[in-house]
């Protein structure tokens, strides 16, 4: 649990709007280790999404050094960054961002297809949906799913290819309290069972409560980095099994 998979040293990001320069990150220093369940918190405009975009190789930093799985993001071509995202990273977005014309199963299967998984990809996709309690909804399109269900499909899509790092940008922002709670349990359960690392941004204090480590960004810098000592054994929901947890997920 001590391998550093993400290392940021003095990372800056400046956006240019015409002649105006808007600094989003002003020198972030942060290390993320394998298996962490890390929450990025901070006020709006503090740089959480920008940092997640950089960590996810969606964008390149303006300055400083950002290494993801030992690769300097600034040095990678567009194709190499796409390859890194495909092989090592998973994304969960605030607005779910499922492909509307594909069913839940196909949304998950698509990622496996991109990875070049052959004949068994449908079974694998179905297994991931089953694992997240979505088996019965596999043939529904996003429009036929509730927000909570869509976000769980998005998590299934993010983890289907077993990425080592899952980045989630405000994953519970569009969910009610119960669904947010359940989603966090599912994500933490995936992390526990598959050894994936989760880094997510959030405003929600109930979500922060699930994090093992909380990094606070203020004005584009790390203002606080707090790790919870002696992490407790995890349950999906206290006293409730996984299947039952899935049953709790209402629209």
């Amino acid at each position: 649990m001590s391998d550093v998979i993400l290392s940021a040293r003095g990372v800056t990001k400046i956006f240019r709007q015409g002649r105006i320069e808007v600094p989003a990150l002003r020198g972030v220093d942060l290390e993320v280790r394998t298996g962490e369940f890390l929450a990025l918190v901070g006020p709006s405009g503090s740089g959480k999404t920008t940092f997640l975009n950089l960590a996810g190789a969606l964008d390149v930093p303006t300055g400083g050094e950002l290494l993801v799985f030992g690769k300097r993001i600034a040095d990678l071509s567009r194709a190499a960054r796409a390859e890194l995202r495909l092989r090592e990273l998973g994304f969960v977005f605030q607005a779910y961002n499922l492909v509307p014309v594909l069913t839940a199963l196909e949304n998950v299967e698509f990622v496996l297809e991109l990875q070049g998984v052959g004949g068994e990809r449908r079974e694998r996709a179905r297994a991931v949906l089953d694992e997240l309690g979505l088996g019965e909804l596999a043939d529904r399109r996003p429009a036929e799913l509730s927000g909570g269900q869509q976000q769980r499909v998005a998590v299934a899509r993010a983890v289907a290819a077993r990425p080592r790092l899952v980045l989630a940008d405000e994953p519970t922002a569009n969910l009610d309290g119960e669904n947010a709670e359940i989603l966090m349990h599912l994500m933490r359960d995936l992390r526990d069972r598959h050894g994936m690392t989760f880094v997510f941004s959030t405003h929600d204090p109930r979500v922060v409560a699930h994090a093992v480590r909380v990094v606070t960004l203020v004005d584009g810098r790390v203002a606080r980095d707090q790790e919870k000592p002696g992490e407790a054994p995890h349950e999906i929901l206290p006293g409730v099994g996984k299947a039952e947890a899935a049953g709790h997920l209402g629209p």
């Binding site: 969606l58 890194l84 977005f93």
Partner: peptide, 16 residues
């Protein structure tokens, strides 16, 4: 555009 951005985020290459 957002959908293509998501596909790109998932690792879909330009060629695909």
């Amino acid at each position: 555009r957002r959908e293509f951005a998501v596909l790109s985020a998932l690792g879909m290459r330009a060629r695909r």
